[in-house]
Design a binder for these strands. Structure first.
Length: 427
RNA sequence: GUGCCUGUAGCUCAACGGCAGAGCGCCUCACUGUGGAUGAGGAGGUUGAGGGUUCGAAACCGUCCAGGCACCCCA
């Protein structure tokens, strides 16, 4: 093995094959976002550490952000999430924007974490937010966006579900059990990890937080209550909205969903594969005041984020990633010999101007090699233009997939090419 | 940051203290003005790195690097 300088831990190389998949994912995200009237935006990848100081979970910034001093000594962070940037962008134009804003973004993020399945140090994330509305309808809309996205990827409701809860409901329920206000945040965090710890360990840890055995028992029956949402007017309305939006089948109530980030104040949700093979596909919720820490008038909203890693793992496991190959609709023009090169180039140029994707061979190696090359890179069609064809003004058009070929006048080339490529479209 | 598992040819893996191998892929040829196939040859490894134990290490031991699994946290 030669000494090759290693890539940075937790980063991924996107070769054309992987890049085509990423491009496909971005296209789907763009289409779904636009179909709900959302506009694309982006912020810088570099931010001052101060932006994150007051917001986010503390651990997210202190332990999971890539932070380094720039040449002037200022501490710069590679953005670990987009929400603080969004808050700043909204706050600084708060008086000129028209609310509610519907914004989405897709870009790279970095977190200094231990890489493992579904988690890398550099990842791409779709962020989408509806800002400036406190209505249940806004929460429902974002969940519908998530559901329609899953649908557009070919993921069926029995394969992945959006699990929904409401922090206000949980808070009220904890209060009813008699859990004191100061204790509730810790209990909520504990609820969030109930499926990650063995039952006895979780019980013990929960008791250690200060619950009585009776409260623990009540808490556990609370978390097993699939009908709890019916006690929440907001959730009742939410599920009814989801029904009208045609995405009810993707949604499910789940009292264990809390979400880690502090700024969620109402509806919280995350999408998970029903087989339980992967971590959360996406997560989000309702916040009471996006711009609270950045200054500006209180502004509620709802949004979610989806990383590229888990969704691609899921799609891969479900066989839902299409074959993507940039060359698959391209035409290969072979170069028979030096004397024929100019004719081949002329034909190639003409086809490009007609809108086809056309590539040639750099040298004049024998046809076997050239056609093998065309086949391996996945070209859809190939042309052979030798001395005999040139003399008669003809070309040989090969359908590489069908393994057939036609000898035809050069003038009829476009007509036949269009037929071959149309045939591919219909597959 | 903590614990556990793994690292052998381009890829997937075998060899488990005694000569480092297979399948696939790659290259050449049969092949002539024609790509899936078939056949015949061929190239390719300091066994992740650098130490130790041993007559002898891919294998055993500790260190580092990387990947995976769980925790933490989260997309």
């Amino acid at each position: 093995m030669e000494k090759i300088i290693r890539s940075v831990k937790g980063t991924r190389d996107f070769y054309p094959q992987e890049m085509a998949v990423r491009r496909w994912l971005i296209t789907k995200i763009q289409q779904v976002s636009a179909s709900f009237g959302y506009q694309e935006y982006d912020g810088p990848c570099l931010e001052t550490i101060d932006l994150y100081a007051a917001k986010s979970g503390e651990e997210l910034v202190k332990e999971q952000a890539f932070v380094f001093p720039d040449r002037s000594g200022e501490n710069i962070a590679l953005r670990p999430e987009l929400t603080p940037t969004l808050a700043r962008m909204i706050a600084s134009k708060q008086n000129e924007l028209t609310f509610p804003c519907r914004w989405w973004s897709f870009g790279p993020f970095w977190r200094y974490e231990r890489p493992q399945k579904g988690r890398t140090r550099e990842f791409f994330q779709w962020n989408i937010d509806l800002i400036g509305s406190d209505q249940v309808a806004a929460d429902a809309e974002l969940i519908a966006v998530a559901a329609e996205f899953l649908r557009s990827m070919g993921v069926r409701p029995e394969q992945a579900k959006i699990l929904i809860n409401d922090r206000r409901l949980m808070d009220a329920q904890l209060s009813q059990i008699g859990i004191h206000t100061e204790l509730r945040p810790a209990i909520l965090r504990q609820i969030d990890r109930i499926d990650k710890q063995p039952a006895e360990v979780w019980d013990k840890n929960t008791l250690d937080l200060g619950l009585t055995p009776e409260q623990l028992s009540e808490l556990k029956s609370l978390l097993a209550s699939a009908d709890l949402w019916q006690q929440s007017p907001e959730l009742s309305e939410l599920f009814s909205e989801l029904d009208a939006l045609g995405v009810r089948e993707y949604a499910a109530y789940e009292p264990k969903i809390i979400r880690g980030l502090d700024y969620y104040t109402g509806t919280v949700f995350e999408a998970r594969d029903t087989a339980g093979n992967f971590r959360a596909i996406l997560g989000g919720g309702h916040y009471a005041n996006l711009v609270g820490d950045v200054g500006g008038k209180p502004l509620p909203g709802v949004g979610f984020a989806m990383g590229d890693v888990v969704i691609l793992l899921l799609l891969e496991s479900l066989g839902l990633i299409p074959e993507n190959n940039a060359a698959s609709e391209a035409v290969f023009v072979s170069i028979f010999d030096e004397n024929c090169r100019s004719t081949s180039n002329r034909v190639a140029a003409r086809l490009r101007r007609a809108g086809y994707k056309v590539f040639t061979y750099p040298g004049t190696e024998k046809l076997t090699r050239q056609l093998k090359y065309a086949d391996k890179v996945g070209a859809r069609a190939a042309l052979v233009i030798g001395p005999d064809e040139i003399e008669r003004g003809e070309v040989v058009l090969k359908d590489l997939a069908a393994r057939t070929q036609l000898l035809l006048p050069e003038a009829e080339l476009e007509k036949h090419l269009a037929a071959i490529l149309a045939e591919r479209q219909s597959l």
